[in-house]
Amino acid sequence: MTGKEPNSWTQIREELLRRINERVWQPGSLIPNESELAEEFQCARTTVNRALRELASAGIVTRKRKAGTRIAINPPHKAILTIPIIREEVEAKGALYRHTILQRVKRSLPAFLSGAFRVSEDTTLLYTETMHFSDNRPFIFEERYTSLAAVPSFDALDLDSISINEWLVQNAPYSGGELSFFATQADAKLARNFDIAEGSALFATERSTWNQDQPITHVRLVYMPGYRMRTSF
């Protein structure tokens, strides 16, 4: 990153985090003050302040008035969630990816999701059902509510040319989210979509994302029988 680039607070946060992770700044060391960083990145001090506040809230730096900002000696170890693009997951296995939109309609949030996806009653939501395929075999069934207040351009999107999953990852930045994993059984709809018997055991996840105080989307993903999720940390 150079000082000539127009930097947002998120870009600055990522650059500061890179310096911390790569030990450009050592644990316990004092880093440049806000004015110096603002001059380096050619931005307002408030932009730098926002980036530093985010790092402080994550426990990566400690900030004291008149004493400056220091790199935490024992920062907390947290898992960082990167939302996977389903197409890339399929293609990484050497398989052919495609998706089909099964349903696309505007509707209100059902009551049973009110605790998981906190949108106001007048928020317009686009409800979609998508089937993702791997080599023409059912891979993931996706059931999603997306707030058009958060991503208004989503309403006119051609969902046949790019999956909702991929478009949102690329175009709807999020500042936080919640993720849950659970076992479920195939109801009539899932049995039909996966071509399996009703009651078959399936693996599922639910995820909600938001940007600051604005909810973006709530998605339920149900995976093909025998799916195994792997991750690293």
Score class of each variant (00 low, 15 high):
10 T>Y: 13
110 P>S: 07
60 I>G: 06
199 G>A: 08
28 G>P: 06
91 E>H: 07
163 S>P: 05
121 E>N: 10
133 F>R: 02
199 G>D: 08
86 I>E: 01
20 I>H: 04
6 P>M: 07
158 D>V: 00
3 G>C: 09
98 R>P: 02
57 S>V: 08
56 A>W: 03
82 T>A: 12
215 P>A: 05
187 D>N: 15
150 A>R: 02
110 P>F: 02
168 L>K: 04
153 S>K: 13
173 P>N: 05
146 T>D: 01
162 I>P: 00
192 R>D: 14
32 P>S: 06
170 Q>V: 08
87 R>M: 06
140 I>L: 00
98 R>C: 11
184 T>D: 06
60 I>L: 14
194 F>T: 06
173 P>T: 07
13 R>Y: 12
86 I>P: 00
90 V>M: 06
28 G>E: 08
139 F>S: 05
42 Q>A: 13
147 S>Q: 04
112 F>I: 13
139 F>G: 07
129 E>S: 06
215 P>E: 03
60 I>V: 15
109 L>Y: 02
184 T>Q: 09
98 R>I: 00
166 E>N: 12
82 T>G: 12
46 T>L: 10
40 E>P: 00
99 H>S: 05
198 E>W: 08
174 Y>A: 11
47 T>M: 04
13 R>K: 14
229 M>N: 09
12 I>V: 11
135 D>T: 07
59 G>Q: 06
108 S>N: 15
75 P>M: 05
28 G>D: 05
183 A>E: 12
216 I>H: 00
115 G>N: 11
163 S>L: 03
52 L>T: 04
4 K>D: 13
233 F>W: 09
53 R>N: 15
76 P>W: 05
180 S>V: 09
87 R>K: 15
197 A>H: 09
98 R>H: 15
185 Q>P: 00
57 S>Y: 06
228 R>F: 04
124 T>H: 06
197 A>Q: 12
222 V>W: 01
7 N>M: 15
141 F>T: 00
206 E>V: 08
155 D>E: 15
35 S>A: 14
102 L>S: 07
22 E>C: 05
233 F>S: 11
100 T>I: 14
71 I>H: 04
21 N>M: 12
200 S>M: 09
134 S>I: 01
138 P>S: 11
138 P>Y: 04
84 P>G: 10
86 I>T: 10
144 R>W: 01
218 H>V: 00
182 F>H: 13
98 R>S: 13
66 K>A: 10
117 F>W: 02
19 R>N: 10
196 I>Y: 06
124 T>N: 10
210 W>S: 13
170 Q>C: 07
162 I>H: 00
138 P>F: 01
44 A>W: 02
32 P>F: 03
175 S>P: 01
189 K>N: 13
62 T>P: 00
134 S>Y: 03
28 G>R: 07
144 R>H: 07
52 L>F: 02
118 R>L: 12
26 Q>L: 14
4 K>R: 14
16 L>M: 14
67 A>D: 13
